[in-house]
Simulated scan of single mutants.
Amino acid sequence: MNNSPIVQEYSYENQAQVIELILQIQQQEYKIPITKEEQPDLYTIEEHYQTGSGNFWVALYDENVVGTISLLDIGNNQVALRKMFVNKDYRGPSYKTASLLLDTAIKWAKERPVKAVFLGTTPQFLAAHRFYEKNGFISIDLNDLPENFPVLQVDKKFYKYVLDKN
């Protein structure tokens, strides 16, 4: 059996598992006091993320959602990388889930008129910081974000990835 999860576009049938995965990582693993009510986008993924140059993907392993990633179209040929979460059992080199998700999102952005990907993350996600930096994201200051970038209250560290459009 293939050891890698399969990445596919989100569909409504994935919603319950997506919400469960994200809340488990936020609340239990990282002790971030955020509720599903504070994330209404999780209930309107199609309308919120799957428009313009945006999209939302899930990583499936044996039909279980083990990872998520999204690109939110923020206008001006820019997107915000959001909702990147990977079940702790599927992180690392054995499954490559995070890399599969990020590669899918970057490939999608390169096929559209997107010039840059921005993201915000929390100080606690140290492994995520290393992952983004290893994959070509550069750390930027809050003041360097586009004005349309939706900064979340928990976001204190920001990154930018410039797409090569040559």
Rank of each mutant, 00 (worst) to 15 (best):
S4L: 09
P5M: 04
P5Q: 04
I6F: 11
V7N: 01
Q8Y: 06
Y12E: 12
E13C: 06
Q15D: 11
I19L: 06
E20M: 13
L21S: 06
I22E: 13
I22L: 09
L23Y: 07
Q24G: 05
I25W: 03
Q26V: 01
Q27G: 04
E29D: 14
E29R: 13
E29I: 13
Y30Q: 09
K31C: 08
K31L: 14
I32Y: 13
P33C: 11
T35V: 07
K36S: 12
E37F: 15
E37A: 09
Q39H: 07
L42R: 06
T44D: 11
I45V: 13
I45A: 04
I45L: 08
E47V: 05
Y49Q: 06
Q50Y: 05
Q50W: 02
T51N: 12
G54E: 00
N55K: 10
W57F: 15
L60Q: 09
E63V: 08
E63Y: 12
N64L: 10
V65A: 08
D73L: 01
D73Q: 04
G75F: 02
G75W: 03
Q78G: 05
Q78T: 08
V79D: 00
L81W: 00
M84K: 00
F85R: 03
F85N: 03
V86K: 01
V86T: 14
N87V: 02
D89Q: 15
D89Y: 15
Y90G: 10
Y90S: 10
S94C: 09
S94R: 14
Y95C: 04
K96W: 03
K96S: 11
A98I: 00
A98L: 02
L102K: 01
D103Y: 04
D103V: 03
A105K: 02
A105S: 06
W108I: 03
A109M: 05
A109N: 02
R112Q: 14
V117G: 07
V117T: 12
F118D: 00
F118M: 07
G120V: 02
T121I: 06
T121G: 09
T122G: 11
P123D: 15
F125Y: 15
L126P: 08
L126W: 10
L126T: 12
R130I: 03
F131P: 04
Y132I: 00
K134H: 10
N135M: 08
F137P: 00
I138Y: 15
I138W: 14
S139G: 10
S139C: 14
D141Y: 07
N143D: 15
N143K: 11
N143H: 14
D144S: 12
N148P: 13
N148H: 10
F149P: 00
P150A: 03
Q153P: 07
D155Y: 04
K156H: 10
K160N: 10
Y161A: 00
V162E: 15
V162F: 15
L163I: 14
K165C: 13
N166F: 11
N166K: 11
